[in-house]
Design a protein around this nucleic acid. Sequence first.
DNA 1: GGGCTCACATACGGCAGCGTATGCGAGGGC
DNA 2: GCCCTCGCATACGCTGCCGTATGTGAGCCC
Lengths: 214, 214
Amino acid sequence: MGLYGRPMRAAARSRDDSKRETREALVQAGIAEFAEHGLDTPSLDAICARAGYTRGAFYVHFRDRDAFLVAVMERVLGRFFDSIIATGDAAHDLERTVGRFADALASGRRGASPLPLPGAVQLHRLLEACARSPQIRRRFGSLMQEAIARVGRATAAGQAARTVRGDVDPVQVGLLLVAVAFGGIALLETGIPFDPGKASRTALRLVARRPARA
Amino acid sequence: MGLYGRPMRAAARSRDDSKRETREALVQAGIAEFAEHGLDTPSLDAICARAGYTRGAFYVHFRDRDAFLVAVMERVLGRFFDSIIATGDAAHDLERTVGRFADALASGRRGASPLPLPGAVQLHRLLEACARSPQIRRRFGSLMQEAIARVGRATAAGQAARTVRGDVDPVQVGLLLVAVAFGGIALLETGIPFDPGKASRTALRLVARRPARA
DNA sequence: GGGCTCACATACGGCAGCGTATGCGAGGGC
DNA sequence: GCCCTCGCATACGCTGCCGTATGTGAGCCC
């Protein structure tokens, strides 16, 4: 063991590797802390401790707390949008895909999730919290619109077209599905036993020309 | 003017009236501050200043910051649930009612809202933030379920029955609508030009047996 | 391998916010 | 009308957190 109980990194590590590893550990710790307690509460000490470092290391990698926030959200939102886009583009069977996406969102256990996402509740908390930062919002607003538009287009494309009414704006449907996922998460946070996956599938079934079991 | 620029209360006010007025001002200031900055950031000094008092007055009315939080959320959630329930119970024309409700949620201007609610963004922020308090969640979880169940039942009752597929669980529809409202608000916060009212109406139109403009 | 560099830890000053103790002036019972 | 009560303001100590300055040991160039 190294100083202060932190495991000694494998001997003879390159400086660049070590540095990237440290930064990565700090970002991961930030994601975890912010997801649990929001963006305001966690102290730099708590974050650094969780990563196994001290503030000395922190200020090597980030100018201040705000810069760190941006870095963390860049990571989280990047993965989130990638997942949405991938889900949308691959939507051959929209109902199944959306259901899986919503289930993934709802899954709190990261390992069990087919998406590289933190749990839904944590993600929602991060998004909600970061919405208060105009800087972050400016940075990611267009990205989010793009992602949702793709989901909407996927709704109108491929096999999906068969299951959706012709007279409904696909972008609106995409928005609707994302909104359901988000809203369901909000309900989950307030203690309502809401199932985003089930609700999304219900929504899609409603969108379909004929009820699924008719 | 009284000391510190605060307008002198009308002379000869009863102590009880004065006390209730002070408490009310603090709660209102708390709602405004928490809605703008979340539950963590606003300082007691800022809240008291906004209400036109100091922390000395605060500690006359509330044991500590947490007790104040509970009092504020009790007010906000109480009105919120009342509105949901009233909307649900009065839902003769569900599409119009839900649309109005969603519009009210989306309206940031309190005066323009037909509901006694703060703006949607603020409300969502409060709900999201309070979700981190197990105490508050325990206190209001059942209330929220009840409110949503009522909306769902209203969906199946009255004229609403005419416009909803018979094979859809009304409670699920209620959950769906509330989820759409919440999710739309979340989207709004991230900068997406989402219209909860329009989306809710779209969702309801999808639920209806025939498209509205068919 | 000697010395420089750099990643990180430790130490320090400062500030903001909370909760308490105390002061003060205006209601309200007698 | 006197004095007690009480609602509110002021003053103070304390803690937690941030950002900086400084120390130190391990990589890296020659």
